[in-house]
Simulated scan of single mutants.
Amino acid sequence: MLHILFLILKIIGIILAVILGLILLVICIVLFVPICYKADLHGSGNARELTVHAKVSWLFGLIKAVFALENGKTDLSVRIAWKKFGDSDPVEDKAEDRIEEKPKPEKKSVMQEKQVIQGEEKQDDTTNRITDKAVEDQTEKAEKSEQTAKTRPESTEKKQRKKKDRKEDSDSASKIEQITEKIKCTYHKFCDKINEITEKKDKMSDFLTDETHKNAFLKLKNEAFHLLKKLKPKKIQGEITFGFEDPSLTGRLLAWISMIYPWIGEHTDITPDFEHRTLSGDLSIRGRLYVITPVVTAIRLILSKAVRRSFKDIRNFKL
């Protein structure tokens, strides 16, 4: 009995060891298999004719994403194992132009045309009669209004003028009061906003000048630069000539490129054109990133007390 029991335990131990070994193997594959990326750019002098081919793959091509830009048309396809998302071929316009035939107007008979002309003449006669009657009515009304205006006594006109003057005076006084009240309200609102801004400014300055928050910011900065160093391409080769219609834009872009030129300038030749708008040349980029690198940076940030405390303060911070 003991021999059989030990044999069963031995088999269970072997199965557990195999399962743990497979789990460790999967973890090692996920962490130490790199994410490879590459990109090829080609320009022939015009920015609209730029062609770009980029590819990102992981786990020996089990997960892959391909991007293409040709003739102003983009294509993006993603494959996860055996499932594909997006179009695998570049987008093409396969629709053909179709000409729609306009329906021909039907020919009318001579009798129908005569009937239409007679109907139009009758309508014109009726409209002319109606307009003549309307003009006569308006003239009669105008004559009656003139007669009534002449017969009005002068006393009623004076009373109406006095009433109008009183209304105008009261309206002007009410308008002045409304304007003064609006000015007072805007002044008080402006003062309240200034006080709120000063209070928010004091809170922000206290939050940013805290030592723990400063240490957390420095930690994030160092980890971000470390991750960018690991993410930078391993191989860059190419020759590029660029330029804009405005020479100032060319100078600004050249200033931005000069910041990263120490990392890309060893195998690249970049020449600005300050007179013409152009984008020509070839550029090839190759690089990779191990998954363990962002995982380690995330663990470092989580273990940092300053980062955790500043994260809690940011969640609870209210202006």
Rank of each mutant, 00 (worst) to 15 (best):
L7V: 09
I12L: 15
G13L: 12
I19L: 14
L20K: 01
G21A: 10
V30G: 04
L31D: 13
V33E: 04
C36E: 03
D40E: 14
H42Y: 14
G43M: 04
G45D: 06
N46E: 12
R48A: 12
E49C: 02
T51S: 13
V52H: 02
L62Y: 08
L62R: 05
I63T: 04
I63W: 03
I63D: 04
K64G: 02
V66E: 15
V66R: 11
A68V: 01
T74P: 01
L76S: 00
A81R: 00
A81D: 07
A81P: 00
P90F: 02
D93I: 07
E100W: 04
E106L: 09
E106W: 02
S109H: 04
E113C: 05
Q115A: 10
V116L: 10
Q118C: 04
E120G: 06
E120I: 05
E121K: 15
T126C: 02
T127A: 14
R129D: 10
T131K: 13
T131E: 07
K133W: 03
K133Q: 09
A134S: 13
D137V: 15
D137R: 14
Q138L: 13
T139A: 11
A142E: 06
A142L: 10
Q147D: 11
T148K: 14
T148F: 07
T151S: 09
R152V: 03
P153F: 07
K159A: 10
K167D: 11
D171C: 00
S174D: 12
I176L: 12
K182R: 12
K184G: 04
F190D: 10
C191Y: 13
D192C: 06
N195V: 08
E196N: 08
E196K: 09
E196C: 12
I197Q: 11
K201F: 01
T212L: 10
A216L: 03
K219L: 03
L220H: 13
E223Y: 01
E223H: 00
F225W: 05
L227D: 00
L228G: 08
K230F: 00
L231Q: 09
K232N: 13
I236H: 02
I236C: 06
Q237H: 11
G243F: 00
D246L: 07
T250G: 03
G251H: 07
W256Q: 12
I257K: 02
M259C: 04
T268Q: 06
I270K: 09
T271H: 15
D273H: 02
D273R: 01
E275P: 01
H276C: 05
R277L: 02
T278P: 06
T278K: 13
T278Y: 03
R286L: 08
R288G: 02
Y290F: 14
V291N: 04
P294H: 08
T297I: 15
T297H: 03
A298D: 05
I299F: 10
I299V: 15
L301Q: 01
I302T: 14
I302Y: 15
L303E: 04
L303Q: 08
K305Y: 08
A306H: 06
V307A: 12
R308N: 14
R309Q: 05
S310F: 07
D313H: 11
D313A: 06
I314C: 12
I314N: 05
F317R: 03
K318L: 07
L319R: 05
